[in-house]
Each structure stands twice: as C-alpha cells, then as structure tokens.
Design a protein around this nucleic acid. Sequence first.
RNA 1: CGGGGCGUAGCACAGCCCGGUAGUGCGCUCGGUUUGGGACCGAGAGGUCGGAUGUUCGAAUCAUCUCGCCCCGACCA
Length: 490
Amino acid sequence: MSKGITKRSENYSEWYNEIVKRAELAENSAVRGCMVIKPYGFAIWEKMQRALDDMFKATGHQNAYFPLFVPKSFLEKEEEHAEGFAKECAVVTHYRLKANPDGKGLVVDPAAKLEEELIIRPTSEAVIWNTYKGWIQSWRDLPLLINQWCNVVRWEMRTRIFLRTAEFLWQEGHTAHATEAEAIEETEKILGIYATFAEEWMAMPVVQGIKTAGERFAGAVETYCIEALMQDGKALQSGTSHFLGQNFAKSFDVKFTNKEGQLEYAWATSWGVSTRLMGALIMAHSDDNGLVLPPKLAPIQVVIVPIHKTPEDLAAITAKVEPLIAELKAQGISVKYDDDEKQRSGWKFAEYELKGVPVRLGLGMRDLENGTVEVARRDTLTKESRPIEGITDYIANLLDEIQTVIYEKALKFREENTFLVDTWEDFKAQIEKGGFVMAHWDGTAETEEAVKNETKATIRCIPFNSIEQAGKCVYSGKDSAKRVVFAKAY
RNA sequence: CGGGGCGUAGCACAGCCCGGUAGUGCGCUCGGUUUGGGACCGAGAGGUCGGAUGUUCGAAUCAUCUCGCCCCGACCA
C-alpha cells in the first residue's frame, strides 16, 4: 500500500475516492452502483442521524416506516412526480425463482409474474399519501408530522460513492397541514434545521434559497435547498425541503373537514437529506493528508497513542492514561486509547490523520518524567507539548475551537470563491474556474437552459439573503431584480 | 446510453505484444533486532490468472463471446 494519497491539485476525484477508501468510510460493492458503508463511515452517519433526529423530534416530528415497494399505480397518480422519477426506477416484476431446467442455478419463474409491478421506492410520497388518506379526516388530525429513515433506489447511469449511488440512505419527512401558510412555514423550518445542521455540526457553510422551476422536485410547487461549495469549486446540493401544495392531496384524494365544516385538500411538504452529506463532509474539509472531521461528528474525537519501548513502559503509560480517559469520557468526549502492539506509533500517527481524528495525544516516557503530553490537532497539523495537569479542560476547549476553525476556514474558502459577475465574458471565464457565481438572471427557463448548454453551469438557487438590486441579466441583458447563484454542480 | 480503462495471492500491480516452471511490493505467519512521524533482517504460508467456448502438443498470454467494476461525457439528489 502506498503511503500518501493523491493530491487534490493533481486529481480531485481520485483524491476523493482514496479518502473514502483509505479512511475506511466505504467501498464499492460487488453490486453495481451500490456501496458498502464501513463501520467507521457508518459511525459518522449515525452521528448525523442522531443530531438531525433530535432536531426533528424537538420540532414535533415522529418517526414511522413505510414500505419499500410502491405499486406502479400509486406512483402514476401524481403526474409530474411520476414523470420525474420514471427514468430511474428499479421495477419488481416477479416474486419467485426456480431451478434452471437447463442446468445449474436459478431462473425467474415466468409463472410468478406480478399482476402489478412494484417499484422500489425512489422516494415515498406516493405510498405515504396513499396511507395519509386513511389517517386524515379532520382538521384535528393536522398537522401530521412524520419522518422516516430508510433506503431508496434511483437507477443512476453514473454513480459516485456517497455522492450519487443507486441505493442510498436518507431521511424523508412527509407532513400534512390544514393551511398553505402552515405548510410553507414547515418547509422553511426544516430548511432552517438543515442549514443549522450543516453549519453547526458539519462545519460547512451553506447558501439557503429556492430552486428555479427547472431544478424543482418533481411534483413540488416550490423547492427550497441548501447549497454548499466544495473545494474543487463545484456546488453540492446538500438538502432539499419541498412545499408540495395540494398536489399529492388531490392525486390521492386526501381531504379533511375544516373548522367551518367544509372539505378541503390537505397541504403537504416533504424534505430529505441523504448519505450524500458524507460526500459533502469529505469534500468540505479534508486535505492532502486525508480526512478532516469536525469534532461534533467525529466517531473518535481524541486518540491517545502510547510511545514506548518495553512492556513496562507501556504499563506505566497506561496507568497514567487510564484516569485521563475516564476524565475525558466524563466530559462526553469520545476517546480511543490505541495500545495495539501490532503497529508502531509512527504508523498510528499517519493512520489517525488519514481518518480525520480531530485531536491526537502522544504520551511517552519523556512525558511521564516531565508531566506533559503531546497534543496534535488534525485541522492545523500542529503539535505542542502541554502539562498533563488540566489537559481535559484544555481538550474540551480545543475540540470546540477546532469545530469553529474548520467552519471559519470553509466559510473563508466560500467567500473567496464567490464572485459577483456582470458580463457574459466574465461569467463564462469564472464558471470555468469554479466557485459560486452571483449574477443577474432574467427569470426565464430559456435563459437558464441556454446558460447550462453553453457553460454547464446551473442555477443552484435563488438565495434568500440576496440583496435586492436591479440589474441586467448576464445572458440576455433583460431586467433582473436580484442575483442568483450559478455554479457547476455535482 | 456513448467513449476509454481495468479484472492475475487479502491489497496494489508486473508478466500478455513475441504461447512453454505464475512473479514483485505491501499485508499475513514464525524468529530476531528495533520503537518520539507509516522500522529492519531472516524464514514461511497464500493463486479455479473474472467466466465460457475455441485455436494449439501446450493458453494468464491468441480468437470469439460474456460478466463485472472504475474513469470521462449525456441524464439526475
């Protein structure tokens, strides 16, 4: 195994793939387009799940579970939705195999053809709204605030580990409301949760905004999103929250009696983030030495590496380390003491760097004599010797500091790579170089399409915080009221 | 779905053009020396060469077919 990894500047996608593999986050499986998420990678996903789940629960949502299979007739009901997903559906047509009459192995039993094909869910609006029909009769049943954690399948032509896999894990929230205003409020509330999670947990700054009609979720009235800028200058849609209007209620006939005794269609939202966030996390912070994890999502926040020659030395170090581990754990810090004799300390230093562990403590005989410990931080790759006395408080603060520092670094990167552009020439040149390009847009799908065809850039979103400022569309020269975010995207 | 690449030991790869004892590095096992940034020496174990068919006295190597994965495009979260 080679020691170093490919540099970002040499081959960005190779760098990404190597981090995923070498940090043991995931690997490509024997199944095309599907990944195996390994324990270390899954531990990060579990931390993401926990943080998000707590936020969903704190805002009144409950978890439930709906079927993997969607009868084709359900999917068909909301027309735009059906069209949007039709091209990437895995379809179950039979329910039995039988021994191959011509020899070894199994074949599909033609006698076991399903009367109606089952679609493996690409998303669950159809199944869920079919179910909600039975759950919603009165305004008193609303709002209905449900989330599910599950897998979905979208048969992608081309896949990339974590960023676009044929099967992925996600959460999908599906809510029903009595009024349009309340549903829109919900859509916005969830987007806020996503943004908070991205910034405070993942330490990844995001732009919040609204998708253009062309980028909208199939079947939605409005799609809100968070967009992040990756280190190669490409945008990554990191979460979406959809206001679905009454589209699904009408398609699935979900009506309720309002306070005035009249029947009304329910208002809907849906929203999701997926294991794609793992890809975002990697590309937001990692460097040429490997993964860099924000302390709040790191499965191991502190690793302690003993540096010793003899078993006696190790025992002495362990005796010193044990109370330290207890103190760190008491502060809620996850700590690993790596006294595995199989590898030497130098190997371990490199390994934990590769895996993005935020803080590494080195403890050798010299430290025991001096009452010190070596503190190495992953984000800055710096080391310092500190008194072991009071080290727990120091580390607790250091973890907070690292969380802040990597966020600030990512924010600075985004600011330095966000450009106000007003001419078509500048636009093309800047898109080529990468980054968020803030430009005026005339609001038409034609212009959006033309820009995409000529530059490969798409409108990532119409940001909420965009300053109202009259200008001329960078492509057509027509009037525009505000700037939108253009970028090449994953 | 188009273009390209690759399938040989757990991993990374060489060997293939020009058919003839299946190799190297890492990892693994054992022994020894080492140990503050991916240690070194010695001895071992480990392979249906992706699969099928064909050509041949003989196929990892040549031919045909096939399966799979990766990368680049188009499409999409």
